[in-house]
């Protein structure tokens, strides 16, 4: 493993301008990590230092040295306010995790796990062994697929009388009812369309979750951070599924069937992945 020229070896003082820390991307089992040791590697999160492996008996952390002048507590908090800086680092982080996840099961870490020296990392690997090893096993040969559900409101509204069982019934009743009653029913249908649209969206989300849960080892409904409106409509639900690699075709087919079924309701599904299993890295998920 090469040492970089630009980022110096650990300094004794945390406050020294040359002080470095160790940025941790993910954790893998030591044997497969060792097998990858000679492979070409992607770049690290900062130029001037290469990726390194910090090994213990069972677990290995994938890390790189970072200058604490940038990655120290207050400096980093400030940097995170710079969206482009953050986006670039996040992409580098992702790229590293993906590289290792392609070859072996890894626990992807969230951005920003930094230790002041190697022994800190080694201590963590030892302390967290009982949590990390089962997670690595659980994620073995599995990848995360995201499903985003979009709704084209206009299409759904247009079709809602067909889509909603309740409105369908009312429409049938209106057809065969005497004129006065029929008119009232029509008014009721009109008034209900918005609520029924909401209900239809919720039903679609539930159907997606329960159907695809059956084709995966785990599912998570994700909080929508930003309301997206795209050509597919508005983002209405977001899920992550843990899918064994060998079962991906089944999963994809099920998603496709769902998408076809829901299309006339103005519901569009977007599949994104494969991702390292960030949403399934916690022991309780």
């Amino acid at each position: 493993m090469s040492e970089s020229e630009q980022i110096k070896s650990p300094q004794s003082s945390y406050n020294s301008p040359d002080a470095i820390g160790y940025y941790v991307y993910c954790v893998a089992e030591s044997i497969p990590a060792e097998e990858m040791a000679g492979d070409a590697r992607p770049g690290a999160i900062e130029d001037g230092a290469d990726l390194e492996l910090i090994k213990t008996d069972k677990l290995t952390a994938i890390v790189s040295k970072v200058p604490l002048s940038i990655y120290g507590e207050s400096a980093l908090s400030e940097k995170l306010l710079d969206a482009a800086w953050t986006a670039i680092r996040a992409m580098r982080h992702e790229h590293v995790v993906e590289h290792f996840a392609r070859q072996t099961s890894v626990v992807p870490l969230r951005f920003g796990t930094i230790y002041l020296n190697r022994s800190g990392v080694e201590q963590m690997l030892s302390d967290k062994q009982e949590q990390l090893i089962p997670t690595i096993q659980r994620l073995k040969d599995r990848v995360e697929w995201g499903v985003n559900m979009f709704c084209d409101r206009a299409t759904l509204l247009d079709n809602i009388t067909n889509v909603s069982p309740r409105l369908r019934e009312m429409a049938e009743a209106a057809k065969s009812a005497p004129p006065g009653q029929s008119y009232l029913l029509q008014k009721k249908i009109e008034a209900s369309r918005t609520d029924e649209t909401k209900a239809a969206v919720a039903r679609a989300a539930d159907e997606i979750e329960s159907t695809l849960k059956g084709e995966s080892d785990g599912s998570v409904k994700l909080r929508i951070l930003k309301v997206e409106t795209t050509e597919h409509g508005e983002l209405k639900a977001k899920f992550a599924f843990l899918v064994p690699r060998s079962r991906f075709e089944n999963f994809r087919e099920a998603a496709e069937q769902l998408a076809q079924r829901m299309e006339s309701s103005g519901i569009r599904l977007e599949l994104t992945g494969p991702w390292p299993a960030y949403n399934f890295a916690n022991a309780d998920e």
Partner: peptide
């Protein structure tokens, strides 16, 4: 994924 998900391990920063 990178900023909001992934395992949170309390590092030293």
């Amino acid at each position: 994924h990178v900023l909001n998900r992934g395992l949170v391990i309390a590092g030293e920063i």
